[in-house]
């Protein structure tokens, strides 16, 4: 790189705005049942925060912040949360995904249903965020310059 300050504005702006984007994504996920938002939208915002960092700073910088195996773990763990909450309802004599039967210390069953919706939206958000970032890493590393990115993403837990 000839000029170190070539991307100064882009890098500074991304560094300033990245925490705000991630916080906004968490807000969208957790507030999805009472305002516009939900798991899918919040997950996409969370993933786009990391993708923005990867565009501005390069893939190596971002891989130090969130590692490949953490992303793969999160994208599987989200589906596990969703299916786990659904299956936990079976233990207390409810139907599959019947959140009202969960034994939580709340006043009435409707509030428990609201909490169940929030729980599965957390799962959906984790899965969507993990898959977005994972697809971006794969496409960039496979389609870009192979010499610069040698072996970086291949350290994942699921590499063949």
């Amino acid at each position: 790189m000839t000029n170190r300050y070539e991307n100064l504005i882009i890098e500074f702006f991304c560094r300033v705005i990245a925490p705000v984007v991630l916080l906004f994504g968490v807000y969208i996920v957790f507030h999805g049942e009472a305002s516009p938002g939900g798991g899918f939208q919040g997950g996409v915002i969370l993933g786009s925060g990391y993708i923005m960092l990867a565009i501005a700073y390069g893939i190596d910088f971002t891989l130090k912040r969130i590692r490949e195996r953490i992303i793969l773990f999160l994208s599987g763990f989200g589906v596990f949360i969703y299916g786990g909450i659904g299956a936990a309802c079976l233990l207390w004599h409810g139907n599959f995904l019947d959140y009202g039967k969960l034994p939580l210390p709340l006043a009435h069953t409707n509030a428990i249903r609201g909490l169940g919706i929030m729980g599965i939206e957390i799962g959906v958000g984790l899965t969507v965020m993990g898959v977005m970032v994972s697809i971006y890493y794969d496409l960039i590393v496979a389609g870009g310059n192979q010499k610069e990115n040698k072996g970086e993403v291949c350290d994942g837990i699921l590499s063949r």
Partner: peptide, 23 residues
């Protein structure tokens, strides 16, 4: 469902099985 957002209520509760496999 105790969710004022109709979209979230339908997505996560009435059609929860659909969303599970969508995920």
């Amino acid at each position: 469902t105790d969710a004022p957002n109709f979209v979230s209520a339908v997505l996560a509760d009435y059609r929860g099985f659909d969303t599970l496999f969508e995920t």
